[in-house]
Design a protein around this nucleic acid. Sequence first.
DNA 1: CATGAATGAGCCTTCATTCAT
DNA 2: TATGAATGAAGGCTCATTCAT
Lengths: 201, 201, 201, 201
Amino acid sequence: MAETEKNRGTEKRERILEGALRAFAKKGFYNTKVSEIASEAGVADGTIYLYFKNKDDLLISLFEDRMEFLIERLQTELDAVQGGVLDKIRCAITLHFQLAIQEQDLAEFITVELRQSAKFVKEYENPRFHDYLRILENLIADGQSQGVIRGDVDRRLVARSLFGALDEVLLQLTLSRSGAPDVQEKARQVAQIFTEGIVAR
Amino acid sequence: MAETEKNRGTEKRERILEGALRAFAKKGFYNTKVSEIASEAGVADGTIYLYFKNKDDLLISLFEDRMEFLIERLQTELDAVQGGVLDKIRCAITLHFQLAIQEQDLAEFITVELRQSAKFVKEYENPRFHDYLRILENLIADGQSQGVIRGDVDRRLVARSLFGALDEVLLQLTLSRSGAPDVQEKARQVAQIFTEGIVAR
Amino acid sequence: MAETEKNRGTEKRERILEGALRAFAKKGFYNTKVSEIASEAGVADGTIYLYFKNKDDLLISLFEDRMEFLIERLQTELDAVQGGVLDKIRCAITLHFQLAIQEQDLAEFITVELRQSAKFVKEYENPRFHDYLRILENLIADGQSQGVIRGDVDRRLVARSLFGALDEVLLQLTLSRSGAPDVQEKARQVAQIFTEGIVAR
Amino acid sequence: MAETEKNRGTEKRERILEGALRAFAKKGFYNTKVSEIASEAGVADGTIYLYFKNKDDLLISLFEDRMEFLIERLQTELDAVQGGVLDKIRCAITLHFQLAIQEQDLAEFITVELRQSAKFVKEYENPRFHDYLRILENLIADGQSQGVIRGDVDRRLVARSLFGALDEVLLQLTLSRSGAPDVQEKARQVAQIFTEGIVAR
DNA sequence: CATGAATGAGCCTTCATTCAT
DNA sequence: TATGAATGAAGGCTCATTCAT
């Protein structure tokens, strides 16, 4: 029963996070009222404050939670790749796009709110986002030590550039809310540009 | 005197835009009070409403004005480039970074607020931003017709990816407010990745 | 407890209406701040917006509520009158004056704000006021079918004239805030003028 | 030339009063902006403050000016009446309605703003309005000394009642903006009610 | 006298947060 | 835990008034 109660607790917390994600994706952090989140989550306004310190904290927790999910997913997929580093990069890019299709709200939320939050939500540094970038960096590093990727490129710069490129393309996809039938092709092309761009010859 | 009056009018309008840019860069659109903009601009609160319909309109006007400036600047620089398409792309990238150093507030404003505004500021489509992207697209198109750039890449995708990469790298630069001593090197590397990535072989 | 909660709700709504009545009577609608109403009612500013859409809505609701009260009161008194139609008219006039003495704020509010509101408060038609007039009209109609009142007078015109006369006299009474010791006599005289003026001979 | 200048001055003052009358009739005192009055009058905002101390003063001046006009007109017409006191009363009533048809804006202005102003415009007592009432009172007084009107009615009460009745009926006429084809008949009926109501038998 | 750009005090309304139940 | 009515600080915007030209 202690278990059940805890479950009920976490289940409600999760409901709130989902409501917040939906609401933030639809209207943005600053245009979303706490009462709207509550109503999306099917709880009372005050209940939110039992699980989160305030609206900022809710946003931060949402980042933590969802980024953690993305990181785990990315890591798992990368581990499963048979091929070399370039294949892993292709895999990461494809996964990025796939997730955006599966989780429209999440994609919209991250592409739009990540930057604001980095600066204006009470000094929050978004460490999970840096974890995500680090995975990409490590991929590059592996490629460099294997001689597959040019040794003179700045790993962090490449990782950031890649994330930026993916993020911007996704932004367009999610904002247009087009079914985006050619996501696969877009993924292939971005992957090609970056792999060709950094490959050692 | 008609001249003088017009000048006074536009001069005050420009002061307000500058104040808004400074304030938005520092605290973000939603955390900036109209009275703060007024005080930055050295005018009374009410004066702002003589030149702009409301706070949203001020943001939009700021985009229009500053993007126009960026576009003109980019076009001028590109026209002055002697070399081929790839040199022009390198030039565009370098300029992007240079401007970010010279106009920190502008860089911060655009990297952080562009996305929010695209979605949440009253249906504003930000047409100037699309003009900016189109310049990059046309560059790619020229390269393709000259056979310098692979014909199978989606021009719009490349333009967006490039902008996204530049924007994200800039974001880090501006947020860290590091003097960024190695901007030149970063520009060179991003340019290399993209040119190598799309060049025809 | 559901009962209690409902009571608390309506009780607070009523407190706000009372505060508004007091404030409007004292300073007029346009010179009364919402915060003053709140303080008269002993609630927070924001609380008012839990019960009313905005300041206009508060004014309208006040009319609805108080006119309903007046109408009920008038109807009850008229039903209790033993005599004929002319006696009922005398009763209506007397009641009008009596209420003005008992409910100074209400009298002041209605005499002064009714006209403004009719035109300038967002298209509000003040249907209750017309209900009130209709009672007077019906009284005249009864008198006409009984042959007590001349058949050639326009019932609506008489009703309006009577209301106008009463209202104007009341205005003076309430504005002067004189104790008005001779209200009975005034009521008698107005009643005499109107009954003599419309009686069939 | 001094004459001309003075004329220009008074002409502009009159233009402003006319603009104010039009604007107040249309939107009411509190909903009319000084700039709207200026634009109606075809002068600059600031110009208004050369002729009137402030917005309140403009309203008061408008009352003074227009009431004076009405009083003169009424007095002239009454002096021209050949018949007795009752005929004069009929004449006053008819004139009241006639003016309302000819000067819709003025009628609307007075019926709606007179009461507000009496209380809320800086203690203004509206002496001209009392002058107007006094003319009616004197009429009654004359009738009483001639034995045509009952000696026991309160002159001031009758005057007020009559004004209230006329005012209320006019209010309906002006608000409905109906062409009011039967004004003559309405005038006749109100006159009949009041004369029959106060006549000595 | 006339102008109208500029001012800034003031007000309605919103909404994150609290707390009695 | 959960609720949601109540709070009140805060901010966008208006508009009467001023004053340099």
